[in-house]
């Protein structure tokens, strides 16, 4: 692809010229990776919001009390901005920008509820809903209602829109993989890779609609590099990755999140002091997570912390 533009793109990139030059002249230290206390003021839906330098537009939206849908963003992972459901309109930019990763710059004017934004969000939700099983994706149906998403309009009487259709992979007693629910948010790959675990047992393979999360040559997990930290499961937003305990309860129609309590405690194994959240249903632990804002774990655990609780129930 040596050419990708229409005139639109040309405009886009030409308007970006100012960015290039201003970056080149103003950037003396390393780009805003470290959040300093210097404040940046931007306008969101007509309101002025001050955020620390280096904060994203998404963080500014939060500060302004504007809720933003997202699938691929998580507090404990590097933003990959692939789901595009968080896009907002930035004045002066031809395309919409991902609020999860775009750094707020002084004077930016952002709109989060224009027709363009609503349209893009609606379409992204429809695209996902028409391709994969979102039945266990929390929070998304709320947004589908807001944006009036109609996931069925892609199929016609004699034609079904192509869906991701994969059998559930159950290869061990700890967690299952159901890629017919996968929205390819990359979170699991990041958690397995250099955002946390550095095991790199899984990666995105293939291309386009056929892209899948996979081990090498689709090897079974016990035959892969997987060390069963379960950090991929913890960050999965759709239930494509699921602890076996949860999966079994769901299969038995006994999974009742509304009846569950979550208790924060500390792992009983080594001396690092990882915080655990024990999800308890009917006086039994049904899954273990870790708070992603805890300085020790950032939400990540090892196999013992994640699965080593089972002795509690004999």
């Amino acid at each position: 692809m040596s050419t990708t533009d229409t005139s639109d793109v040309t405009t886009d990139i030409t308007t970006d010229t100012s960015d290039v030059t201003s970056e080149a002249t103003t950037e003396t230290s390393d780009v805003a990776e470290t959040i300093t206390e210097t404040a940046v003021t931007i306008t969101i839906d007509g309101r002025s919001v001050a955020v620390p330098e280096g904060a994203t537009i998404g963080a500014a939206c939060n500060a302004a009390g504007v809720n933003t849908p997202t699938l691929c963003w998580a507090e404990n992972l590097t933003p990959v901005n692939v789901c595009r459901v968080c896009v907002v309109e930035l004045e002066g930019s031809r395309a919409l920008v991902p609020s999860c990763s775009r750094i707020a710059e002084q004077g930016m004017v952002i709109h989060t509820d224009t027709e363009r934004v609503r349209h893009s969000r609606r379409m992204v939700l429809e695209f996902l809903g028409s391709s994969v099983d979102l039945s266990q994706t929390s929070d998304l149906h709320h947004w589908m209602d807001i944006y009036d998403a109609d996931c069925d309009r892609y199929s016609e009487d004699d034609h079904d829109a192509k869906r991701v259709d994969e059998p559930v992979k159950i290869q061990d007693e700890l967690y299952i993989r159901d890629y017919s629910k996968c929205v390819l948010c990359y979170k699991c790959v990041e958690a397995c890779g250099d955002d946390a675990q550095h095991t790199f047992a899984i990666a995105v393979s293939g291309r386009g609609f056929d892209a899948r999360i996979s081990t090498e040559f689709d090897a079974s997990l016990p035959d892969s590099a997987c060390v069963y930290c379960g950090n991929c499961v913890a960050v999965c937003p759709t239930g494509a990755l699921q602890f076996k305990t949860e999966y079994d309860l769901r299969q038995a129609e006994q999974w009742r999140p509304e009846d569950q309590t979550v208790t924060r405690t500390v792992c009983s194994y080594c001396g690092v002091g990882c915080n655990l959240e024990l999800h308890v249903q009917d006086e039994r632990i049904v899954k273990v997570t870790s708070p992603s804002d805890h300085s020790v774990t950032s939400g990540h655990l090892c196999i013992k912390g994640r699965f080593g609780w089972q002795y509690v129930h004999g």
Binding site: N81, R84, V85, M123, V124, F127, L128, S131, A211
Partner: peptide, 8 residues
Amino acid sequence: GQCVPCRV
């Protein structure tokens, strides 16, 4: 296949 709008 990276972003949803283009992939789907």
